[in-house]
Amino acid sequence: MNKVTVYTTTTCPYCVMLKNFLQAQGIPFTEVNVQRDPIAARKLVATTGHMGVPQTEINGQWVLGFDPEAIMALVK
């Protein structure tokens, strides 16, 4: 079972594309909106060193931005 977490903001078009892509692939995911959750936002930056979204954690590996190929390479 894949553990997929997508970090998003409310206004990010690439976040919507990413969520739609995961849904189309039948990949379940948890969404964390860092715009609404400042603690999660700080933790994300501390972990990855990046402010931008989307960022996706897949089984402990990180994908920055909307990168379907990288995502599919990490999904088991």
Rank of each mutant, 00 (worst) to 15 (best):
V4C: 09
N59E: 14
C15F: 01
M1L: 12
F29S: 08
C12L: 09
T30R: 11
V45P: 03
E69T: 15
V6P: 04
V63H: 01
P13Q: 08
T10L: 08
V34Y: 03
P54S: 09
L74K: 13
M1I: 13
P28C: 05
E31R: 01
E69G: 05
L74A: 03
G52H: 09
T5L: 12
I71S: 05
N20S: 15
T9M: 10
V16P: 05
M1K: 13
A70K: 12
D37H: 06
G26Q: 05
Q23K: 14
K76N: 15
L64G: 06
Y14D: 13
G65Q: 02
F66Q: 01
L44Y: 08
P68S: 05
E31F: 00
G65V: 03
Q61W: 04
N59H: 04
N20T: 06
F66K: 00
C12R: 00
P28R: 07
T56C: 05
Y7W: 07
E57K: 13
Q25F: 07
K3G: 02
T9E: 10
A24Y: 04
I71A: 09
F66C: 03
C12A: 08
T9K: 01
G49T: 13
M17R: 15
V34S: 02
F29W: 04
Y14C: 07
E31G: 01
W62K: 02
Y7F: 13
T5W: 04
N59W: 01
V4L: 07
V75F: 01
Y7N: 05
D67K: 11
K19T: 08
K76E: 15
L22G: 04
V53N: 06
H50Q: 15
D67S: 07
N20W: 06
M1W: 00
V75A: 12
Q25A: 15
I27H: 03
E31T: 06
I27V: 15
P13L: 07
A41G: 09
R42D: 13
D37P: 05
D67G: 00
M17P: 07
P28N: 12
M51P: 09
G52R: 03
K19A: 05
L74N: 09
E69P: 00
A70Y: 04
K76G: 14
